[in-house]
Design a protein around this nucleic acid. Structure first.
Length: 683
DNA sequence: ACTAATGTCCTTTTT
DNA sequence: GGACATTAGT
């Protein structure tokens, strides 16, 4: 095995962290400071020091990140087979899933449990809420999302439901007892259904670590624990980490408090701040050299984050040089914003920037709508990240529900989903059927089960039970074969139900293809629920630009970044009202800006048409608070207000003062029309 | 008890 | 513009 020259391949900050001796370590890594590189080299270093790869646990924010890191480590070490580096790597949830399938029996969990995703959890909760809040008119009851958020927050933050209610939804405080009943019933129904939700995966892992016998097993299993994106872990996860490493103390965490953007998922910034208290022997390292962005981009980023009060002091330095400032462009409305971005994208591609190196970022997934239309119109290929996951789409879930029942006969949510697809069966009938079939030991003779049903429902049930029986007989087949069988059954419903059934049919075929790499149905089902994203052509399509939510862009970088729809109505999000929430929104802005290597464009529309009428917009306060020193400001407006028509004439004018908080200390730079703007005639 | 038609409310980020 | 509740009809 050839040795790695750590000293040569790392800077001194990174080198110290990578070659640190055993013991607890905290690495505070600024944006673009080679955080991933440091982690990768640390793992390689440990292995070179003789640590067996299977003794290393690498917890990352996405499974993709873990896979990428592991293959980079394999490459560094000249490992023959990239896929076989036997490090334990993945998200907290996916590792928990693997453990609980194996050790769950110790704490009463059957190894064929199904995983409830967010949607499934909500539909179960919805039923429970209508039972306990039945005395309230339906539109006065708390909705399922609220209840789910409440319960999740209390579990992940390790606080009581009462405290969680006070913090998150104080307006519901009078209903505490009802919420407690709902939470208890939810727990009970999950148990009866033999399902775990995302929170349960963590919670039961935590409970496993408290078992003294398991404690020994875990201490043996992993001698080194590494955690990436530590600023976005929650209290429950921090406790798991603590239990896993309190005996050997070989815990290394990496993070950046300035990039903490998941508090809505109970991420607790205090975890990273308190790490040295929890592990008193901890050494702290700081990575403060930014290798990613031009000094202009970094200056802007530093200026943005400096406006937050609650943070570690940082001094992020650039090493690259450049003379190009990021640009801020105001467009008349969202359609023109989309056109401007599309023009600029075409120009960048013409200049030789690879499409895959271009990203458009936005706060909420639906913000991309007008841009998507424009890109489609021009035939510019794009990949969408964020928003609805492939596996969350209704038709995909309909097919998967059958497979879930096949692996776990008791899954209430999956049964309800299947039953409600058929004519004559509504909620009441579905309940009745579930009550019977959930008691069955096996699906083998399910077609013998008879009910007293209406004639439509009767026919439907016969159909369902026949499909179930044939599924059961084929259950050893490859998941792909089962899925193709179900697609045939589902086709009629699909065609009748959805105008875009052709697209959806293709999705289902994609699902079948994807599943063919799995032999084990349980593994297939849990992995797709825990996989952050699935994109059929993810990574293959070099010709496509990327559209992404800011959250999904975390940890990534591109040559050119567009940050669109930076309006007063979208950043900060109007629902983020408290000071801490506002600061998190500003960190989101910071994360977005620091994704850019070379080109950065901030755009916002000054007006928007939508279903609730015409809205006049201004720049995001986060933008207008900035001194303009680091930005080129351009205000592209129409000279006269008229209705939509493409032959209207436009003029460029610098009327920034109308929208800008006057800042006499930092006079704005004048930009000549045409300096970099698209040809207005073409509009 | 189910279904289709009509009315009303909300509108974020995701393992 | 879409999810969800209510209402009226089968």
């Amino acid at each position: 095995m050839s040795k790695i020259d750590f000293q040569k391949e790392l800077n001194s900050e990174q080198y110290r962290a990578v070659t640190a001796p055993d013991g607890p370590h905290l690495i505070l890594a600024g944006a673009g400071s080679g955080k991933t590189r440091t982690l990768v080299y640390r793992v390689a270093y440990l292995i070179e020091q003789g640590v067996k790869p299977e003794k290393i646990l690498l917890l990352t924010f996405t499974n993709k990140a873990a896979n990428e890191m592991m293959s980079r480590v394999a490459e560094l070490l000249h490992w023959q087979d990239k896929n076989k580096l036997p490090i334990w790597g993945g998200t907290f949830h996916s590792i928990a899933n693997r453990l609980l399938r194996f050790y769950g029996a110790k704490i009463g969990i059957q190894n064929n449990f199904n995983i409830l995703d967010e949607d499934d959890a909500k539909s179960l909760l919805k039923n429970i809420i209508s039972e306990f809040f039945g005395h309230l008119a339906a539109n006065r009851r708390p909705n399922a999302s609220l209840a789910k958020e409440l319960i999740s927050f209390s579990i992940n933050s390790r606080i009581s439901l009462a405290e969680a209610l006070e913090i998150k939804f104080s307006e519901w405080q009078n209903f505490l007892e009802l919420f407690e009943k709902v939470a208890a019933e939810y727990q009970k129904r999950k148990k009866l259904s033999n399902v775990l939700d995302f929170d349960d995966l963590l919670l039961y892992w935590k409970i496993l670590t408290e078992d003294s016998e398991m404690q020994k097993i875990f201490d043996q299993k992993w001698q080194y624990v590494l955690v990436d994106e530590y600023q976005d872990t929650n209290t429950l996860q921090a406790e798991i980490i603590f239990n896993l490493s309190k005996n050997h103390q070989n815990i290394l965490v990496v993070g950046d408090d300035a990039q903490s953007i998941y508090s809505f998922r109970a991420a607790n910034i205090q975890n990273i701040l308190d790490f040295p208290k929890v592990f008193p022997r901890a050494t702290v390292y700081k990575l403060e050299t930014n290798y990613r962005s031009t000094p202009e981009i970094l200056a802007l980023a530093n200026e943005i984050i400096a406006l937050n009060t609650n943070q570690f002091a940082k001094n992020l330095q650039a090493i690259l040089t450049s003379y190009v400032k990021p640009e801020l462009i105001a467009l008349e409305n969202n359609l023109r914003e989309a056109k401007w971005i599309a023009d600029r994208i075409e120009a960048l591609i013409a200049e030789g920037v690879p499409a895959i190196e271009i990203v458009v970022l936005f706060r909420a997934s639906h913000h991309s709508q007008s841009l998507e239309m424009e890109l489609n119109r021009r035939g510019i290929a794009y990949q969408m990240r964020g928003g609805l996951r492939f596996f969350d789409r209704a038709h995909i879930k309909d097919i998967l529900a059958w497979l879930k029942v096949l692996t776990n006969t008791k899954d209430e949510v999956a049964w309800a989903r299947i039953l409600n697809l058929y004519p004559g069966i509504g909620p009441a009938t579905a309940q009745k059927i579930y009550a019977q079939v959930s008691g069955l030991e096996s699906l083998e003779n399910i077609d013998q089960v008879a009910f007293n049903l209406g004639s439509k429902a009767q026919t439907s049930w016969q159909q369902i039970s026949q499909v179930m029986t044939s599924l059961f007989r084929q259950q050893k087949a490859n998941p792909a074969e089962l899925i193709r069988m179900l697609i045939k059954e589902y086709q009629e419903y699909l065609t009748a139900q959805y105008p875009d059934y052709r697209q959806r049919s293709e999705d289902l075929e994609q699902l079948a293809i994807f599943s063919s790499s799995y032999q084990d149905l349980n593994a297939f089902l849990s992995e797709i629920t825990l996989q952050e994203k699935f994109n059929a052509d993810d990574g293959h399509d070099q010709e496509a630009i990327i559209l992404s939510t800011i959250h999904q862009a975390k940890g990534l970088e591109w040559q050119a970044v567009f940050l669109m729809n930076l309006t007063n109505k979208s950043l900060p999000h109007p629902l983020a009202v408290s000071e801490t929430e506002q600061e998190e929104e500003r960190r989101l802005f910071y994360v977005a800006v620091t994704r850019a290597k070379k080109h950065l464009y901030l755009t916002y529309p000054m007006s928007q048409f939508s279903y609730d009428g015409y809205k006049s917009l201004t720049a995001s306060p986060f933008v207008s608070q900035l001194a303009t020193t680091f930005l080129n400001y351009n205000h592209l407006a129409r000279s006269t207000m008229t209705t939509e028509s493409d032959d209207t004439e436009y003029s460029f004018e610098d009327t920034a003062g109308d929208f800008w908080e006057e800042d006499t200390k930092h006079p704005r730079q004048k930009i000549k029309p045409g300096d970099f703007l698209p040809d207005i005639e073409d509009w």
